[in-house]
């Protein structure tokens, strides 16, 4: 569907060259919701703009359905772009046009008759649940409503791809959720491939099938969302997981020597990370009984990554060192990651 091959983009400025995107190769399958997550300055916005060539890569190929669109003429490129919707962090609606005309603007070159356009615009506004706002101006809408109009506009030409550039970053958490729901239903109902650029872990967590983690212009990790975040390899991925839950707090508490994390002699603190495979088994109590160790859970967090639970527990084991080691070994053997953190 979308394939990036060795895409590189460098910006030259007086302050020096900025390697916004460095040799990125990605494959995004038809019909999936693909997340690209990274902190600001990671190059993700530039990367998504390379998909519709708002930024021309210095080198590399951008294949849409197998065609390298970098080689297209301006006119051919405009036709390709019409089949790719895009929504933005700041919505980018035309302030002088009503909601109706903002959506209608995208249909200008569709070749539809006036009646067909009218029907299309009304059905799009119904899809995004804004049928009662047709004659409002963008300035009269809330952020969430503006993004809904932008989504309707982006879908006007029946695109096969929808690019979302930080589409929820300017919205409050509740509105973010409703926009994500809308995107998810658009993906399911219309089968549109969605590429989401974000720095918000909850966005990726909620709706992305697969995710790529970006840092300094490169994709450092990529895979199914649950896999990437249950077994993070790179520090940047780990720090995103910390932003999602409160589990990162435990490291701070340890550093501050909080009474909560103080250990008596013979005690050991472990972080256990588990996914769906084993959530239903009573592992802690089994270990406790079998290996004669006491386990007390002092901290816990369960995330749901696109239908797959990802749990993290901070457990203090007390007992014989030998028993603790055996218990930990057992826990590892059932597929739970363990990490001694104190």
């Amino acid at each position: 569907m979308i394939e990036l091959k060795n895409v590189t983009k460098t910006f030259n400025s007086a302050a020096g060259n900025v390697h916004a995107v460095q040799n990125v190769s990605l494959k995004i399958e038809e019909g999936e919701i693909f997340g690209i997550i990274g902190f600001s300055g990671a190059g993700k916005s530039t990367l998504v703009r390379c998909i519709n060539l708002l930024e021309k890569p210095d080198s590399g190929e951008v294949l849409i359905d197998g065609n390298d669109i970098v080689k297209l003429s301006e006119k051919e490129l405009r036709n390709v772009r019409r089949k790719m919707g895009m929504i933005f962090q700041h919505f980018n609606l035309m302030p002088s046009r009503t909601v109706y005309n903002n959506v209608g603007f995208a249909l200008r070159k569709s070749g539809l008759s006036k009646e067909e356009k009218d029907k299309k615009i009304r059905s799009l506004l119904e899809l995004v649940d804004l049928s009662d706002k047709t004659d409002s101006y963008p300035s009269q809408l809330s952020g969430g409503q503006k993004q809904r109009v932008a989504i309707a506009r982006a879908l006007a030409n029946d695109p096969k791809i929808l690019l979302c550039d930080e589409a929820t970053s300017a919205l409050d958490p509740q509105t973010t959720r409703s926009i994500l729901k809308l995107l998810e239903s658009v993906n399911k109902k219309l089968g549109i491939t969605i590429v989401i650029i974000t720095h918000q872990m909850e966005v990726v967590k909620d709706i992305c099938d697969r995710v790529a983690v970006m840092e300094n212009g490169s994709v450092v990790e990529e895979g199914r969302t649950a896999d990437v975040f249950s077994h993070p390899k790179m520090p940047v991925t780990k720090s995103f997981i910390e932003t999602a839950g409160n589990i990162g707090k435990i490291y701070e508490l340890i550093k501050e020597d909080s009474p909560l994390t103080s250990l008596k002699p013979g005690e050991k603190m472990y972080m256990l990370t588990y996914t769906s495979v084993n959530t239903k088994d009573a592992i802690i109590s089994y270990v406790s009984r079998t290996y004669n160790v006491n386990a007390s859970i002092i901290f816990g967090n369960v995330e749901v990554l696109k239908d797959i639970p990802l749990g993290k527990l901070v457990v203090v084991f007390s007992g014989d060192k030998k028993d603790i080691d055996a218990a930990v070994q057992y826990i590892e053997s059932v597929g739970i990651d363990t990490e001694e953190i104190k």
């Binding site: 980018n92 200008r108 030409n157």
Partner: peptide
């Protein structure tokens, strides 16, 4: 707003259309 120009380019409008519309 430069964002409007970017959005219009993403929608596949030509420079002339962007100037007028």
């Amino acid at each position: 707003d430069p964002g409007l120009i970017e959005a219009s380019e993403a929608m596949g409008f030509s420079p002339i259309e962007i100037i007028f519309s």
